[in-house]
């Protein structure tokens, strides 16, 4: 077996033999299910409590808004809000090695540093996809239930929605490897977590909001990782809120931008920390 294949198997076992992967997964699922349920049950409930709203919106609407717009926004909460979880998982997979000094056995077994980082990257890509599936079970499962309980069309039969769900899984996979890249770039565990939370919850939302005020800012903002991810998926609660005048990227462009972030961060991190002396 090649060093890479062996390291890949070891990385999966590493992930599944500590608790953090399912703790993060459970928290993500609960959070997203609650959020999606709140919006879908809330709007659908409002729709049935206020018949004049339903009448105003007509067929295929909920609380005066078209279902074809609301449903994707609810389902895409999986990525628009949930993306921070695979990022954290990916960064922890790296920073744990530094924190607990397990880089020593890792590099003893796989002295080819590039192979060992590539194995971690590959493992987290798969784990990210798993997070994507679970996140969608949360948002789609509970969200569609909310619409269905009040007799509304969940839109799940729509081919566009199905494609959106598939792209959401890809986005979550890419986010996990963005996390790996951040982890090698900032090997301090606390530093990494603070950076991720500050950027995803505060810095990027503000920048994207600012992007809505001027075209040149919007031009830049659509290349931010979160915006690229939303373009890849094709819907996001943020796009609805900020409503920039600049057209978002095509879905495949968004995917390439996000993948470029993941690769560039890992390459940079490899030079900064991964290939260094382990003392």
């Amino acid at each position: 077996m090649s060093p890479f294949a062996a390291a890949l198997r070891a990385e999966f076992t590493k992930t599944f033999t500590t608790r953090i992967w399912w703790i993060l997964l459970l928290v993500m699922f609960g959070y997203l299910a609650l959020l999606a349920g709140g919006i879908s049950f809330g709007l659908a409930g409002l729709n049935s409590a206020r018949p004049e709203l339903a009448q105003q919106g007509g067929e295929g609407s909920v609380a005066g808004l078209p279902l074809a717009l609301v449903a994707p926004v609810v389902y895409s909460l999986a990525t628009a809000v949930g993306y921070v979880f695979p990022v954290l998982l990916g960064s922890l997979a790296v920073t744990n090695e530094f924190r607990h000094k397990t880089l020593t056995p890792t590099f003893l077994a796989t002295p080819k540093r590039g192979a060992s980082l590539a194995a971690k990257w590959g493992t987290m890509l798969v784990l990210g996809a798993l997070y994507g599936v679970v996140a969608l079970i949360g948002t789609v499962g509970v969200g569609a239930l909310g619409f269905a309980v009040f007799g509304l069309d969940s839109q799940l039969g729509d081919g566009d929605i199905q494609a959106l769900l598939a792209r959401a899984v890809l986005a979550m996979a890419l986010w996990a490897v963005v996390g790996v890249g951040l982890g090698v770039l900032v090997p301090s565990q606390v530093g990494s977590i603070v950076l991720i939370l500050a950027f995803t919850q505060f810095v990027e939302p503000i920048l994207r909001l600012a992007g809505g005020f001027a075209d040149w800012a919007g031009e830049v903002a659509r290349f931010l990782p979160g915006a690229a991810s939303d373009s890849l998926v094709g819907a996001s609660i943020y796009s609805v809120i900020s409503g920039s005048g600049v057209a978002a990227l095509e879905w495949w462009q968004g995917g390439l931008v996000l993948a470029a972030y993941a690769i560039a961060l890992a390459a940079l991190g490899y030079a900064v920390s991964w290939r260094r002396d382990v003392t």
């Binding site: 077996m1 062996a6 390291a7 198997r9 070891a10 076992t13 590493k14 033999t17 500590t18 608790r19 953090i20 744990n96 607990h100 000094k101 397990t102 020593t104 056995p105 890792t106 077994a109 796989t110």
Partner: peptide
Amino acid sequence: ALEAASFHPGRSGRDSLRVHALAGG
């Protein structure tokens, strides 16, 4: 065997060895 502390504290002894065995073929 370099440092007595080079193990993830949340992983069992057996699993630590399993990981190393897999990585080392």
